[in-house]
Nucleic acid binder design. Structure first.
Lengths: 266, 266
DNA sequence: GAGTGGTCTAGACCACAAT
DNA sequence: TTGTGGTCTAGACCACTCG
C-alpha cells in the first residue's frame, strides 16, 4: 500500500517538477481549496520542498495550463479550479450530463467489420493510394440502452494488421491501437455540422427521418502527420451536445475541457 | 515603415523570449519551412541571438504549444506547423471555408437593444439577483450577404454602463468590452447542440421552419469567475460548421484551433 | 518598502539519438 | 562519441501589488 507522497523523492526517476505538480494537485483536491484561495508563494515552495525556483515554476506552469490555478504578478497564485465547471453544472447541465464522469453505461455493437480496397474519397483523406486495404467498420453506440451514434470508420490495414480480426464490440479502438499496435494518436481534427437523419440513420438511431442529427467528421494523426483514422459519426440531435471550455492564456485560448455526451474515443 | 526584426532588441520592453518566438514564427512562415525540417539547435539559437538557453526554451515551448514545432530529445526541434491544417484544407474544407482567415465580408444588424430586468433563468446563469438590469440584445449576423446566425445575448448593465447606449451594428461586443470598459474575458464555456428552426428563426435566417440549425450557448467569465455574458445563438445548419484541432501534449489534449464559420467574438 | 511572479543569466548533469 | 533536448541549480533584476 502506498502512502501519500508529501515530499519530493530525490531518487525517483520522475522529474521534481512533475512530482510537485502532483503534490499540489492532491493538495488542492484533498484539502478542498476553493477558488480564490492562495497557494504558497514560489519562494516558500522552494524552501518547503528543498528545490529550485525553476522546478517550482515548471510545476505551477503545468497547473496553470490546466486551468487549476492562476498566477498574478505581484500577488501570487490562486486556485481557480472547480469554479467554471461548477458554475456550469448548476446552469447548463440538464438533459445530458457528462457521462464519462458519471460513468453511464455505454455499449457498442459492431454492424460491420471488413477489409476493403479504400474508396477514392477516403483514400485522399487518409493520404493513401486508391485501393489500399483499409479496415471499414460501422458501429452503433448506445448510452443507457439508447442508440446514440452511428459511426463509420476507416483505418489503413498496414498500420495495424491485427485490427483485421479483432472484435471491437464494447471496446475502444484508440485503446486497442495504443496497447496492441503501439500506435499513439498525437493530433486530431474534428468538424461538427448539423444535419437531418436519412432513412438508414433514422432506423438505427430509432428516430424519424428528417430529425436533427449532429454530423461529426474526424481525422486522427500520428506524430509525423500520418493519418491514422477517418471516421464519420451521426449523433442523435436530441441526445447529444458538445461542450467546450476555453481559457485565455498568454493571448491565446486554451482548451480546458472537451466533453462529449457519448464517448468518441473509439 | 518597419523593417523586419532580425535580431533581439535588448532595449525593448517586449521579453526576449517573446521576440524570439515571433522571429522564429516569421522564419518558418516566410522561408516556407516545411514539415520535418529542423530548427537550429537550442545552443545555436543561444549563440546566434546572444541570449541564454532559458529564453530560447521559453520561446520554443510557446511554439510547441501552438503546434508549430515538435521537440525531440536527442534529435532537435522540427517544424510540424502547416501539416495538419494543410491536410485539412485538401480534404474537408468544402462548402464553408475558414472565413476569418479569408476575410469574408461579415455584417451584423441589431434587431433589438434594450435594458431589462433580468429574467429568472438568465439571472441564475449570470449569477445575478433576479430583476437586476441587463442589456438584452438580438442580433442577426450575415456572411457575404447571407443571414447566418441569430444571436440573443445578455450582459449585466453594472459591468459596463456605457453599453446601454452604444450601437453595436457591425461592431464586436468583446472588442467594445475590452477597449471601452476595460473588461477582459478570461474564460468561456460553450455548448453546441443540434436543433430545428422554429417559425421566427426560420424567417430571420431565410430558411424553412424545421430546417436543421446549430444551437450554441455560451457563458463568458472574467478572471475571477464573474459571468460577463450569456448568449444563445442559432446558426443555419447548411452554412455552419465548427472545426476543432486537438493535439496531445504531455498527456493532455491542447486546442490548436477553434474555427467558426461565423465570427462569434461579438 | 516588502513580497510577489516575470524574466534572464551562466552554468551543470542527464537520457536519448545518431554516427 | 558527439550533440540534442530535458532537467536542475543558484543566483539576479524587474514590474507589479499591497499596506
Amino acid at each position: 500500500m502506498q502512502k501519500m507522497m508529501k515530499t519530493i523523492d530525490f531518487h525517483s526517476y520522475i522529474p521534481y517538477y512533475r512530482q510537485l505538480y502532483s503534490l499540489l494537485k492532491d493538495t488542492i483536491a484533498k484539502q478542498g481549496l476553493k477558488s480564490g484561495q492562495m497557494l504558497p508563494s514560489e519562494s516558500e515552495l522552494c524552501q518547503q520542498y528543498g528545490i529550485s525556483r525553476t522546478v517550482v515554476r515548471n510545476a505551477l506552469q503545468d497547473l496553470e495550463s490546466e486551468g487549476l490555478i492562476r498566477r498574478r504578478k505581484g500577488k501570487g497564485s490562486i486556485v481557480t479550479g472547480p469554479k467554471i465547471s461548477e458554475g456550469l453544472a448548476q446552469t447548463l447541465t440538464g438533459f445530458y450530463q457528462d457521462m464519462a464522469e458519471r460513468g453511464l453505461a455505454t455499449r457498442t455493437s459492431v454492424l460491420l467489420h471488413e477489409t476493403i480496397p479504400c474508396p477514392g474519397k477516403i483514400a485522399s483523406i487518409l493520404n493513401l493510394a486508391p485501393q489500399t486495404p483499409v479496415i471499414h467498420s460501422n458501429r452503433l453506440r448506445y448510452v443507457e440502452g439508447e442508440p446514440i451514434a452511428l459511426v463509420t470508420s476507416y483505418v489503413p490495414l498496414q498500420l495495424c494488421p491485427a485490427l483485421e480480426h479483432v472484435d471491437l464490440t464494447d471496446r475502444s479502438l484508440y485503446e486497442f491501437l495504443e496497447t496492441t499496435c503501439g500506435i499513439t494518436i498525437m493530433s486530431a481534427n474534428r468538424v461538427l455540422e448539423s444535419s437531418s437523419a436519412d432513412e438508414s440513420q433514422a432506423r438505427h438511431l430509432e428516430i424519424e427521418p428528417g430529425d436533427p442529427v449532429m454530423k461529426l467528421e474526424s481525422i486522427s494523426y500520428l506524430e509525423d502527420g500520418t493519418p491514422v483514422e477517418y471516421f464519420l459519426a451521426f449523433h442523435r440531435g436530441d441526445r447529444t451536445r458538445f461542450e467546450i471550455n476555453l481559457m485565455r492564456v498568454r493571448d491565446r485560448w486554451r482548451l480546458l475541457g472537451w466533453n462529449q455526451p457519448v464517448d468518441l474515443s473509439f
